[in-house]
Computed example of a mutant assay.
Amino acid sequence: MPTCLECGARLSLNIPGSVFNMDQTQVNSFEKFLTTYQDKKILVLELGIGPQNQMIKAPSMQLITGNKSSRYLTINKGQLNIPSMIADRAIGFSSTILDAFNALITGKDVVETQGPARPAPQLSPEDRQKQEEIFKNFYPSYTVNKGYRPGELVMYTTIDGNHPSHLHAVKYGKALMYSYGDPVDVHCFTQDGHYRLVKLGLNKDNNEVHGFYVEPNTFIAMEDAKGVTGFTQISVTLPSSSSNEILVPKKDQLKKMFPQQRALIDRLSIDD
């Protein structure tokens, strides 16, 4: 065990517990960095941070996601994690930091690398209009604003009895929050075969919740609970560089997985 250089006492690990002391100065400095440089031309170097360390990794990736002038370089042997939304502006070295820096300095690519990926092709104005019409089947009436955190957008979508949000996959994971109006029913179909109904609203006596997080790859559909006002507005968080790609389930396959929800799936599915 290491000892103190001044008094010789045995040192304790700085882990959560009675002796844990978080360096709030470092936390504040990191948040200030994210805020100050979110619109600058920057290169983020991520050195030896594993994919499980989301406390550091997630804010850094959000910074890159929301800044088209930024670039991302990660070095982590055997544990590269580059999300698709920044893949065209990122490169990873699956090696030690020393070997990666030697490759960068000498120009000799002797280490395993990943990326950058080719950027997604741009749509024509006509295709964008078609995409917009299709998108309204899943988010009927919406506006998008910049979120509070770097790389985050907030979509406000309004749902009524004639315009539900049809079944589609949550690609990135999303936080759904009730804003105002009637409560809304959120139907969730998970990849491991579970169905869950979540009621967004303010009436706890009716098992309503103000918000919840939907895991990636979950199929969801939303419909107004047909209350007094006749419409519902909810907010949805998403990465600022997320694509408009909508993943729609095969109706017949989904009904085989969830036979008890066949009528629900028929009502809230887009025709194949």
Rank of each mutant, 00 (worst) to 15 (best):
Leu5Gln: 04
Leu5Lys: 06
Leu5Asp: 10
Gly17Val: 08
Gly17Ser: 05
Phe20His: 05
Val27Asp: 09
Thr35His: 14
Thr35Ser: 15
Thr35Ile: 14
Gln38Tyr: 06
Lys40Tyr: 06
Lys41Cys: 08
Ile42Thr: 06
Leu43Ile: 11
Leu43Gly: 05
Leu43Met: 15
Leu45Thr: 01
Leu45Gln: 04
Leu45Val: 08
Pro51Trp: 12
Pro51Gly: 09
Gln54Cys: 06
Met55Ser: 12
Ser60Asp: 02
Ile64Val: 10
Thr65Lys: 13
Lys68Ile: 15
Ser69Phe: 14
Ser69Asn: 15
Leu73Cys: 11
Ile75Glu: 04
Asn76Ala: 12
Asn76Met: 01
Lys77Cys: 07
Gly78Ala: 13
Gln79Arg: 02
Met85Glu: 13
Asp88His: 14
Arg89Ile: 12
Ile91Ala: 13
Ser94Trp: 08
Ser95Arg: 15
Thr96Ala: 02
Ala100Val: 13
Ala103Trp: 01
Ala103Asn: 13
Gly107Ser: 02
Gly107Gln: 09
Gly107Leu: 05
Lys108Arg: 09
Val110Ser: 13
Gln114Glu: 15
Gly115Ile: 05
Pro119Phe: 02
Ala120Gly: 05
Pro121Met: 01
Gln122Tyr: 10
Pro125Cys: 00
Glu126Ile: 10
Asp127Ser: 05
Lys130Trp: 12
Glu133Cys: 03
Phe138Asp: 07
Ser141Asn: 10
Thr143His: 00
Lys146Val: 12
Arg149Ala: 09
Gly151Phe: 03
Met155Asp: 07
Met155Gln: 09
Tyr156Asn: 07
Thr158Gln: 13
Ile159Asn: 12
Asp160Phe: 06
Asp160Ser: 06
Gly161Glu: 07
Asn162Thr: 08
Ala169Gln: 15
Val170Asp: 14
Tyr172Arg: 07
Leu176Lys: 11
Gly181Cys: 07
Gly181Gln: 09
Asp182Leu: 03
Val184Pro: 01
Gln191Met: 12
Gly193Lys: 08
Gly193Arg: 04
His194Ile: 10
Tyr195Glu: 00
Arg196Cys: 06
Leu197Gln: 07
Leu197Thr: 04
Leu197Ser: 06
Val198Glu: 07
Leu200His: 15
Leu202Cys: 05
Asn206Leu: 15
Asn206Cys: 08
Asn207Asp: 14
Val209Pro: 06
Glu215Asn: 05
Thr218Pro: 03
Phe219Val: 00
Thr229Met: 10
Gln233Phe: 04
Thr237Glu: 12
Thr237Ser: 14
Thr237Leu: 09
Ser240Pro: 01
Ser240Phe: 01
Ser243Trp: 03
Ser243Asn: 00
Glu245Cys: 08
Leu247Glu: 12
Pro249Asp: 01
Gln253Gly: 10
Lys255Gly: 02
Lys255Glu: 04
Lys256Met: 12
Met257Thr: 13
Pro259Ala: 04
Gln260Ser: 06
Ala263Asn: 03
Leu264Pro: 00
Ile265Phe: 02
Asp266Lys: 03
Ile270Asn: 02
